[in-house]
């Protein structure tokens, strides 16, 4: 399906040497279509707003995650402006953009770490924008962090067991006092399975403090998967990893998706990794959506290349 390719007018604006959009509210990725005929978009573009609307409606019913018009300002800075995003069940979606584009803010808004100023978020058919972080987690949203956030002094296996228990909201004082909350057979099995899947058996009973960054990322991935999530959000999983480690991580991710059928929302700098994992892509710049669509279409788009790679547009992108 290439219906949902939409590219904004940011391309020509940028090439004309005007980095700052005139108003955060005047242009959104969908409405800008008709008003910007000058942009020569490679690949098919969407028809009219009407058709687009119907697609959105259908998406809202089916999609796992629907975020609409999310805006977040920090003082005078619009970290996110009217960002909309959908993730279908089992789908892998990427979010790319240069540093400061608002990727992490988007993540934090979706998770409830930041409260967005406007917009609404629907997950699994329920509105979640008023829920605290832990309730969203219990509904099936798991994440990893760009800078490792592991629990020091705990072993890898303990991470996996705790995440299973807490994601179901079953951490109880009483259970601890009866049998110090020891894991059930099913919990042990899932932990063992994840350890094998992530090839972490060798370090299963090592405290995470001594682990390398590459291992740490895998433990975070395992901790997220232990929650049996419906949506897995990965925040720059390749940062700090070398080429081979990134390759290995990509491979593991593919395996996980194949096996668990979990939807993935990937924020990433490494376009190579993105192109191997996701099928659909959103591109952010200065807190606004500048393109969305199927992977290849978006990557070949001029505006995206300019924003992301800083290339000066050649003739085709200009008047």
């Amino acid at each position: 399906m290439s219906k949902n390719v939409a590219v904004s007018t940011q391309g020509p604006l940028r090439s004309a040497g005007m980095p700052d959009p005139p108003s955060p509210y005047s242009i959104s990725s969908t409405s800008s279509e008709s008003s910007a005929p000058s942009t020569s978009v490679p690949g098919p573009s969407v028809g009219g707003p009407v058709e687009k609307g119907s697609v959105t409606d259908r998406r809202r019913a089916e999609s796992l995650l629907v975020a609409e018009n999310i805006s977040k300002r920090f003082g005078g800075i619009a970290a996110l402006s009217e960002m909309s995003l959908t993730v279908d069940r089992g789908e892998a979606v990427g979010v790319v953009g240069p540093n400061g584009a608002g990727k992490t803010t988007l993540f934090n808004c979706l998770l409830g770490i930041e409260i967005p100023d406007t917009g609404r978020i629907i997950f699994d058919g329920k509105r979640i924008d008023n829920l605290p972080v832990y309730k969203r987690a219990r509904m099936g949203i798991a994440r990893t962090f760009q800078r490792l956030e592991l629990f020091s002094e705990m072993t890898v296996r303990e991470h996996l067991l705790l995440a299973q228990r807490s994601a179901r909201g079953r951490v109880s004082l009483l259970a601890d006092l009866i049998n110090h909350g020891s894991a059930s057979k099913a919990e042990e099995e899932l932990a063992d399975h994840l350890l094998a899947l992530l090839k972490l058996e060798d370090v299963a009973d090592t405290a995470v403090d001594g682990l390398s960054l590459g291992h740490g990322r895998l433990v975070e991935l395992g901790r997220a998967l232990a929650m049996s999530p419906k949506l897995l959000m990965l925040d720059e999983p390749s940062s700090g990893l070398d080429y081979n480690e990134t390759k290995a991580l990509t491979k593991v991710l593919e395996q996980v998706r194949e096996e668990q059928g979990v939807a993935v929302l990937l924020v990433e700098h490494d376009l190579e990794m993105v192109s191997e994992v996701v099928s659909r892509l959103y591109v952010l710049d200065f807190g606004r959506l500048i393109a969305e669509g199927m992977l290849d279409d978006v990557l070949s788009d001029t505006g995206v290349r300019q924003a992301y790679l800083g290339q000066v547009a050649s003739g085709e992108g200009q008047r």
Binding site: I113, P132, A137, F151, S152, E153, S166, D176, M227
Partner: peptide, 23 residues
């Protein structure tokens, strides 16, 4: 030794991470 103790360890290391796993 139990899960509450581990949740507390988790909390001390990273409150954000602890809440994102549902604590």
């Amino acid at each position: 030794r139990g899960m509450v103790g581990r949740s507390l360890l988790a909390l001390r290391s990273s409150e954000v991470a602890a809440s994102t796993i549902g604590i």
